[in-house]
Design a binder for these strands. Sequence first.
DNA 1: TATTTTAGTTCCAAATAATGAAACTTAGTT
DNA 2: AACTAAGTTTCATTATTTGGAACTAAAATA
Lengths: 261, 261
Amino acid sequence: MNKPVVNDGTVGKALEVLDLVASLGRPVRFTELLSLAKFPKASLYRFLQTLTNQGMLSYDPKTQSYAPGLRLVRLAHSAWRQSSLAPVARPYLDALAEKTGEAVHLAQLDHGHVLFVDKRKGTDNFDTLAQAGKVAPSYCTGVGKAILAFMSEPARNLALQQQAFLKYTPATHDNTDALAKELNEVRADGVAYDREEHEVGIISIAAPILTDGETVIGALSIATSTSRHTLDALDVFRPALLETATQIANAASTWQFPTQN
Amino acid sequence: MNKPVVNDGTVGKALEVLDLVASLGRPVRFTELLSLAKFPKASLYRFLQTLTNQGMLSYDPKTQSYAPGLRLVRLAHSAWRQSSLAPVARPYLDALAEKTGEAVHLAQLDHGHVLFVDKRKGTDNFDTLAQAGKVAPSYCTGVGKAILAFMSEPARNLALQQQAFLKYTPATHDNTDALAKELNEVRADGVAYDREEHEVGIISIAAPILTDGETVIGALSIATSTSRHTLDALDVFRPALLETATQIANAASTWQFPTQN
DNA sequence: TATTTTAGTTCCAAATAATGAAACTTAGTT
DNA sequence: AACTAAGTTTCATTATTTGGAACTAAAATA
């Protein structure tokens, strides 16, 4: 079974539908949703009505299809400002990106997946939500492994349990033992590498962001392509990366939430 | 009464709580929410549990406070890509920003409020979600008036009804008659101006984005400060602004949704 | 330290809302 | 015109939500 499905009643079910629509990444019609969701026709219909009514979904009568609604964008603005590391980390990311001239990613864990909350990239840096909000698996990305390695064992197991293990590239770990072994190394070494495990040609070096040198609250990476750097060459960035991680951790621990919008 | 409160059952109530937390813009404790929401203790408690459980809220046990959760950021990524004009409009915004060297804003209407879905700014353009997702009143912003002016009368009345009319600056309209009169002018003229009505020192020229020259789907503005330009000087941008609005409208009408993430 | 106050959590019978099979309506085919 | 598929509504049954009140834990005060 894929879903442990904690029971959150009607609200949980409605949000499940919302997630489903969002996950498809394109407008969907009623019938398609009906075939995908495990809800009876009438129930699904009412959930869609309610969600649309609430602005969580938008409905296009012309194509009779549903898509995630703009209310989510409004809510996310709030979430990003308050619950993500991004606002605190911003100046440090800027500095690191400028210093290294490479793409810098900031990520946090959400439901066992890596959620990118901010990015800096030499070429196109006006990418707003197209980039922030993206998710990736945690077991085969630099930031993901950096976070996993420093989590408590129960938390890590829970996170791993929420993943679908897919072999994205030839280098992707295909058994949890190899992964566990690597996570030990990461813990000892202090940084994690992505060795083309998620995308061919993309490598990264990542460091966890640890408050009090203990609790992981996120991770930071410098990502590049094999055409620009070898894996070993990434080590040049290690000191700057670790320093930035520390700075962000410090800033986060003294972070006062903004008083006004 | 401020709330027409359509009945969306449990889901609607839970989302009301979510909105409340988000609107406060800072972590909130149970008691404060209890005093703000009209729900009985036990009910509010259960809503917060459910929402937290679902990742729509995050809970910090140390400070015992709730904040919007990261799941919203993930969902918003989807919403932004699918339901906003931003992905289609991107290249045109880039071009306009480069051509004029001024700040360019793209906005849509959400619950009667202006929702900024993308921005370009000469100085800091890596502002991600800090900028996208922001909301502003529609009756006293350039983009807001551009949209309102071209809406059908019932839709406009509904939108206006959802506003709290505040006098942000001395120039803010303080009666609906003056606003109605201006909206007529906007409809005749084709562009709307923000004459420091929302923020002192900030002015803008805005154009609606109309599909088939009829239906408003959003608006576009060039915003600047009184220290850089006079209101009259903004008219230099009118042709470029209108042209971009048309381009975006055309692109939107033929827009095919991205097939893959 | 004892006592009071305040904040947060749990209980449970009554009230209400969700459920889903089936009937119905509408739009699109053949 | 007859048929088919898609979307919407109905309603008796069932399950969930509701919220007053009781309870527990933590903080403030004596």
